[in-house]
Design a protein around this nucleic acid. Structure first.
Lengths: 179, 179
DNA sequence: GTCTATATTGTGATAGAC
DNA sequence: GTCTATCACAATATAGAC
């Protein structure tokens, strides 16, 4: 029904990812979305409401991801590492945008990110049994995501196949308790 | 000779860490340092020069850390994990401040951070032999640092002793090739 | 060396035309 | 629903007093 709303939200994500929170002004978002400042502020009465809409979108996408993680054929741990690569999915895009807001000092962004982060760790813990192993796996995934992310945002196309070797390391870690 | 310069730089780090790049205005830095806007802009002709000075400080401190890492009694890998805890050292403070600038979209901040990050990985690789193992160790350290960092910045005091269990996991990872 | 103006630009937000 | 003004305010930076 309101396709403009989605387009504006997409543009907000784009600008946040590409230029950071500082440059994600209403005017920049409007330009990216192909509307005017007034157009943006019609759909989102204030900049805060724009951010709120982004949080909602991100939480919904994260909930879907947790479902897929729980039912992954090769288990949550390998799923988590496999998907720690910024593939440009809707979740990736929303996640990056919210992370930028967090770094801008937004406390709501922090809460939302910690919420999903805690959920992911909980799923890993339930699946692996050992909390330390779960934390190690999660940290590797997070770090992997973080570096892959910046490579992508900075326009580099390297790091295509770094995953294979790390998955082998992961297998050694998670199989420790089953010897 | 110029103690004010250092005080202003310290204040810049503080404001960046506490409130993010968005709120690290010249006025905020001046207030934190106990001088006026004009006072700041006397020592650093522009905001860019202030950032440049921060990069220089950070690179010098990182170089010292790499030396300590190379000569650590328990080896670079365990040293890296042990020191991934935001202890409020001068390097920690500079690192956090530059990371905030990076998230603000500053490309020079990105270059500087990738420079030191690459050096750390190189040292781990030289020490451990296997690049995948080195990457896993580095990712765990980075992720650990990242989460510990936000706990600290948000005023929480949790996570005191999460290190022990993870070090055990690390030992298992790095001993894989010596069986 | 540090301050108090002040100039200039940016940004978020509002009001009203279309 | 979207645009074109326009306002109020905050930010960087400059000029000149002390």
């Amino acid at each position: 029904m309101s396709s403009s709303r989605q387009r504006i939200l997409d543009a907000y994500e784009d600008v946040l990812a590409a230029d950071g929170e500082r440059h994600a002004t209403v005017e920049a978002v409007a330009a990216k979305a192909g509307v005017s400042k007034g157009g943006v502020l019609y759909h989102f009465p204030s900049k805060d409401r724009l951010a709120e809409a982004l949080y909602d979108r991100m939480l919904a996408l994260a909930a879907q991801d947790v479902d897929q993680m729980r039912t992954a054929p090769d288990g949550p741990a390998r799923y988590y590492i496999r998907t720690s690569h910024y593939a440009g999915t809707p979740l990736d895009r929303a996640l990056v945008a919210v992370a930028r807001l967090r770094q801008g000092g937004d406390s709501r962004a922090r809460e939302v990110l910690e919420d999903v982060s805690g959920t992911w760790l909980r799923v890993l813990h339930e699946s692996l049994g050992d909390l330390d192993v779960a934390r190690a796996v999660k940290l590797i995934g997070d770090g992997l995501y973080y570096t892959a992310l910046h490579s992508t945002l900075d326009g580099r196309t390297e790091g295509e196949d770094d995953e294979a070797g790390l998955l082998a390391v992961i297998d050694r870690i998670i199989s420790v308790d089953s010897h």
